[in-house]
Simulated scan of single mutants.
Amino acid sequence: MKNGILKVNKPSGPTSHDVVNRVRKLASIKRVGHAGTLDPFARGLLLVGIGKGTRLLEYLLHQRKTYDVVMRLGVITDTFDKEGKVIEEHDVRASEEEIQEVMKSFIGEYDQVPPMYSSKKYKGVRLYELARQGKVINMPPKRVKIHSLRILRINFPDVHFIVEVSEGTYIRALCRDIGMKLGCGAIDQELERTSIGPFSLENAVDVYDVEEIDESKILSLEEVAEKFFPKVVVSKNAVERILNGQKAKVSDLISFETFEKGELVMVIDESGRLLSISMSERKSSFISTLKSQKRDEAILHPKKVFN
């Protein structure tokens, strides 16, 4: 099976871990993981790493995410979504103009308290596991960012909107906080993730609708890495050394894109094969100076190798 990243269109129902197990079965490979959990009731884009693709997942976790959301006003559940137990119901007295004003006030950074029913850990234990035991943990708020929020329509008691958020933002908690500010409560009624960083839901695979994975649907290691890192091409003489974790020197470089000191770069051979994700020890603009002074210094320190 090809190594890389599979864009999965997760249906409502399965957990993200269920999706990973499904891909393991279809691909006949154990080394499978995902970047960014989706709640069971939620649907949409889940990035799944296959084989060596799992080594790129950490770089996908910190990307902005976009969601298509239906928020229901006037209801509060213990999970802040439609799956939870209803604990309060209230009349919605806010006008459309007030709803729009309040929702737009969340654009920017704010401190968000993670929902108790979440996969976030407290002393090594998932919060949802503690919640099921009846233990309530007051987690400290986390600074998150709402990059954009666009209301599509308001059809009381539901509000349909598109939101782009920073990594670590809980949409259930955003609905909770909007509902609190409106004074009526709110829950996440429907949720679809439509993008993660540069990856969209377009052409994503429903792994529950196929009996085998079409390898052409798997994004190669190189396709994924080039979306995040400057590219450096090294000579064939350097390949084995880099795959063994050794640094690339000035004389090893054939061509390179601009990079800064301390920046991660993707190192490829002359055929375009990904060899490593490396940390630069010099900025690219200094390489010409090193060459003119005949200083064959180490330039790139491998952080991950793909042998």
Results as ranks from 00 to 15, higher is better:
residue 160 H to D: 10
residue 92 V to S: 10
residue 148 S to K: 05
residue 114 P to F: 00
residue 106 F to V: 11
residue 52 K to Q: 14
residue 87 I to E: 13
residue 180 M to C: 04
residue 93 R to G: 15
residue 168 G to R: 06
residue 73 L to R: 13
residue 181 K to Q: 02
residue 42 A to V: 10
residue 120 K to M: 05
residue 157 P to Q: 04
residue 113 V to A: 05
residue 117 Y to V: 02
residue 101 E to T: 14
residue 123 K to S: 05
residue 86 V to P: 14
residue 105 S to I: 00
residue 77 T to N: 13
residue 97 E to Q: 15
residue 181 K to A: 04
residue 136 V to A: 01
residue 173 A to K: 00
residue 96 E to H: 13
residue 43 R to L: 09
residue 182 L to G: 11
residue 124 G to Q: 12
residue 51 G to R: 12
residue 121 K to I: 13
residue 178 I to Y: 06
residue 182 L to F: 05
residue 169 T to L: 01
residue 158 D to I: 04
residue 102 V to D: 04
residue 182 L to M: 09
residue 44 G to T: 08
residue 164 E to V: 01
residue 85 K to M: 10
residue 138 N to G: 01
residue 48 V to E: 07
residue 109 E to K: 15
residue 73 L to H: 13
residue 173 A to C: 03
residue 92 V to R: 07
residue 183 G to W: 01
residue 68 D to M: 12
residue 128 Y to R: 03
residue 166 S to F: 08
residue 174 L to V: 03
residue 164 E to P: 06
residue 164 E to T: 10
residue 138 N to H: 02
residue 109 E to P: 07
residue 87 I to A: 14
residue 75 V to L: 12
residue 120 K to R: 07
residue 162 I to Y: 00
residue 66 T to F: 02
residue 144 V to H: 02
residue 136 V to H: 06
residue 167 E to C: 08
residue 134 G to W: 06
residue 63 Q to I: 00
residue 56 L to D: 14
residue 40 P to G: 11
residue 119 S to N: 03
residue 98 E to Q: 10
residue 42 A to G: 13
residue 87 I to H: 09
residue 84 G to R: 11
residue 180 M to F: 07
residue 150 R to F: 02
residue 137 I to D: 03
residue 51 G to C: 13
residue 157 P to E: 05
residue 40 P to R: 08
residue 54 T to D: 08
residue 150 R to Q: 09
residue 154 I to K: 14
residue 105 S to Y: 01
residue 151 I to M: 01
residue 96 E to W: 04
residue 78 D to I: 08
residue 179 G to E: 06
residue 167 E to K: 14
residue 63 Q to W: 05
residue 77 T to K: 11
residue 176 R to G: 06
residue 126 R to Y: 00
residue 74 G to H: 13
residue 112 Q to W: 04
residue 60 L to P: 13
residue 183 G to I: 09
residue 67 Y to T: 11
residue 83 E to W: 12
residue 53 G to Y: 11
residue 70 V to P: 03
residue 120 K to H: 00
residue 122 Y to V: 00
residue 55 R to M: 12
residue 136 V to N: 04
residue 92 V to Q: 13
residue 65 K to R: 09
residue 89 E to L: 05
residue 115 P to D: 10
residue 64 R to A: 12
residue 104 K to V: 04
residue 155 N to E: 15
residue 53 G to C: 09
residue 93 R to I: 13
residue 158 D to W: 02
residue 180 M to Q: 10
residue 129 E to S: 15
residue 77 T to H: 14
residue 112 Q to H: 04
residue 145 K to F: 01
residue 53 G to Q: 11
residue 121 K to E: 09
residue 45 L to F: 04
residue 172 R to F: 04
residue 47 L to F: 01
residue 169 T to N: 07
residue 110 Y to K: 05
residue 142 K to L: 06
residue 120 K to G: 03
residue 82 K to G: 15
residue 112 Q to Y: 08
residue 93 R to E: 15
residue 70 V to I: 14
residue 128 Y to S: 02
residue 159 V to W: 08
residue 175 C to Y: 00
residue 165 V to K: 09
residue 83 E to N: 15
residue 104 K to F: 01
residue 164 E to N: 06
residue 91 D to H: 11
residue 80 F to G: 04
residue 63 Q to L: 11
residue 43 R to Q: 15
residue 121 K to S: 01
